[in-house]
Amino acid sequence: MSLLSRYVFRQIAVATVLATVILVFAIMLTTSMRLIQLIVDGGVGVGTFLHLVILSMPEFLIAVLPIGVVAACLIIYNRMLADGELLVMRGAGIGQMRLALPGLAMAVIITGFSYSMTLYFWPVANREFRDLSAIAQSDVSAALLQTGEFNAIGDSMTVFVRDRNPVTGDLSDILVHNTDNQDQPVTIIAKRGYIEDSDDGPRMVAIDGVIQQLNRKTGRVEPVAFDSYTVPLSSAGAEDLARNYRQPSERFLPDLLYPDPNSPRDQKNYGRLVMEGHKRLTDPLLPFAYVVFCLGVLLSGDYNRRGLARRILIAALGVVAVQATTMSVAGMARDSLALLPLMYALPVLTTVVGFAILLLSRRRHVPAEAPRASGMAPA
């Protein structure tokens, strides 16, 4: 890479990092509220909270890296065109591909980084994030129950707590609905209670309440008052099943492309798993495709010192259109795997179109000498 190319590459690299950091920070502000709630309502330590935030980073990076590198290329090349720097480079005989080389090099780096995220770091982080969240939420000190909300415990229990004393941890106005026995659902209402740990996991001790259970013989609900009643909050079977069964975001590529034929849940979600596997292979291609297309649009046409707003708009709209089409095709491929080739065709076609624009665009001619005034003969 020549000195000029390295000069442009450094600017693009710095702009990409800045754009990515800003976008990640913005996403974290809007999506980490549920993690902050673990500190405010649940008493989770700051160290655990920061660990959870770090484990969320691969997902954020996968989402913002294509936007960051595209924004960096558009900003840097537009500035260099407006300042006349690229015009000077063209006058020195530098062609379209050499002008685009720094942006293409940055796009290749982002593509490789994206592959490392989707194929390894993202599933590893999601696994640890899920396990750590489960530990934090099942810990007594983390206060499993969120106040003012209906909390689902496993598949058969719903718990509502109106308020929690921040000092003692005592609960008030408790409602528990248990459907372990579908024929005889149980509803527990208590004025107050507290959570304690046990060998079998966390449990809630309800005080001064009533149990309501349907009597199938009489068809009536029979309330039974109590002074103290213990409600287990750990559904071991559901937790074991949840931890043993990995979601698509927690799986590595082979587990997605070749679901377990002996797992009923894998076979039920076969299309979703296979689509997610191919998505891991196609999504990292998009940053390179976007950059090639944007550079093709931006570097084509004539020089305009007033800016390239129209070409930037065309490039941005093209990227948005490809991204929207990619998401739509991925959604449809979940139900029809015959559409999987389209997931590969979109980034490849976008790349081909971008290179075609770069190679076929008219080369600018810079005059070798100043134009002569009209009517004057050469000396």
Rank of each mutant, 00 (worst) to 15 (best):
Y115T: 04
G277V: 10
I62V: 14
R10A: 14
Y120R: 09
A242Y: 03
R362P: 05
P166H: 04
S138Y: 09
F25D: 13
P371K: 03
D260M: 03
F160G: 00
Q184N: 12
R34M: 06
L313R: 09
L257V: 09
M327G: 13
H51F: 10
L241T: 13
A19D: 10
A100V: 05
S114H: 02
M57E: 14
A125D: 14
A82L: 04
R334I: 12
K268M: 01
N304A: 05
L286R: 03
R280W: 06
Q184L: 10
L4W: 09
R164H: 11
M117D: 06
F252L: 08
G112W: 02
V274N: 09
R265V: 07
L52M: 12
L87W: 08
R306L: 07
T16Q: 12
L281F: 06
P284S: 08
C294N: 04
L346I: 15
L359Q: 14
Y290D: 10
V53D: 11
A377M: 11
F150V: 10
S249M: 05
H278F: 07
A356T: 15
S141K: 06
V291Q: 14
D197C: 05
L171D: 00
Y120Q: 04
F121G: 13
I67K: 13
A15H: 13
D255C: 09
Q212N: 04
V322C: 02
L273S: 15
K279V: 12
I62E: 11
